[in-house]
């Protein structure tokens, strides 16, 4: 027994998510620059500590 034909509207969320991954691939450079900066920030934990605790020793 065959089921219901999918409507375009029903596939819209999956299409939207697919286009997000495509957008990430096409616009990889700015995204990559940002995640690289994120990684650099993570590896300098004193930045985080300083931001939270202020100028304490």
């Amino acid at each position: 027994m065959t089921g219901v034909r999918p409507s375009l509207l029903g596939l819209l969320p999956a299409l939207g998510l697919l286009s997000l991954t495509l957008a990430m691939t096409v616009g990889a450079e700015p995204v990559y620059r940002m995640v690289q900066a994120t990684a650099d920030q993570l590896l300098q934990p004193y930045l985080y500590i300083h931001a939270v605790l202020g100028a304490r020793p």
Partner: peptide, 8 residues
């Protein structure tokens, strides 16, 4: 969507 289209 695939599972609905394939029915049973």
């Amino acid at each position: 969507a695939i599972s609905q289209a394939r029915g049973t």
